[in-house]
């Protein structure tokens, strides 16, 4: 098997980039930078496929791995937080040893597979003329069992994740939007509310408009702690504040249309 010049050029450009991406992923301090290096590797792998005249595989690699899977990674990393740094504490016992053994094992497998494909003569598979159709034909005829098994595994994994997420959580009684609004208005906001009592003709209905006592002074109870009240000038004539301890004969004062919050006569 020979490689064309274009293919060789493509390999010698994309190969180092992919390798750099891998190294960058391992050595980057920041988790998001790590993910980005991996994106670079995936992209150059995709382009490598295209150079080797497998455009369907190449673009699928970009769409699936770069577009969906790495995007999920980045999403999770962002959820965790920008400044979350790697913890060096070993959580699972023996994790490093296991990782080392498995890593060496996988490396051995890969080297073996690559060595075999380099040394042994490749059996000339008859390539279908159409890339996409060929893949589709193989996937849905010869390898259909493997494909179905893999997809069943993925579905089980997804369901497991969902179950774990919702396992400890009791089913919440979700209130409708209307119920929430009613609850909110009857709750802490009620005392500031400006619902007019019987026979009161309201001219202002705002929470920011304080209620006036019969002598024209502002009822301190009606002032909200969280909203700045209407400026004194805009209230007009007398807006002197009533003394705190004073008892007011609070019959309805209609001037500013507020239900007076003192005791109703």
């Amino acid at each position: 098997m020979t490689t064309s010049i274009g293919e060789a050029i493509g390999f010698w450009i994309l190969g180092p980039i992919a390798l750099a991406g891998g190294l960058g992923m391992v050595f980057a301090r920041n988790a998001v930078h790590s993910a980005l290096w991996l994106v670079l590797t995936m992209l150059s792998l995709g382009f490598l496929y295209m150079v080797q005249s497998a455009p369907f595989l190449g673009f699928t690699q970009i769409i699936v791995y770069t577009g969906a899977i790495m995007m999920l990674f980045v999403f999770v990393l962002m959820m965790v937080g920008r400044d979350a740094s790697d913890s060096v504490v070993e959580v699972l016992r023996g994790q490093r040893v296991a990782a080392a053994i498995l890593g060496v094992g996988i490396a051995g497998l890969l080297v073996g597979a690559v060595a075999r494909s380099v040394t042994a003569s490749v059996v000339g598979a008859t390539l279908p003329t159409q890339n996409t159709g060929g893949i589709g034909l193989l996937v849905f005829t010869r390898y259909v069992a493997a494909l179905e098994l893999a997809s069943a595994l993925i579905v089980v994994g997804t369901l497991g994740a969902v179950v774990y997420t919702f396992a400890g959580r009791a089913k919440r009684q979700t209130a409708s939007q209307r119920e929430r609004v009613v609850a909110r208005l009857q709750g802490p906001l009620e005392k500031y509310g400006s619902r007019s009592g019987p026979g009161v003709f309201a001219t202002a209905d705002s929470v920011a408009t304080p209620a006036l006592l019969p002598d024209g002074s502002v009822a301190p109870e009606s002032l909200s702690e969280i909203i700045e009240a209407t400026a004194r000038e805009r209230l007009g004539h007398q807006t002197e504040l009533a003394h705190a301890g004073d008892e007011h004969d609070a019959s309805a004062h209609t001037d500013h249309g507020h239900r007076v919050t003192g005791s109703q006569a």
Binding site: V218, P220, L223, E228, A229, T239, L241
Partner: peptide, 9 residues
């Protein structure tokens, strides 16, 4: 310092 009414209080 809040609006006039608040300061009055």
């Amino acid at each position: 310092e809040t609006a006039a009414v608040g300061t009055g209080q």
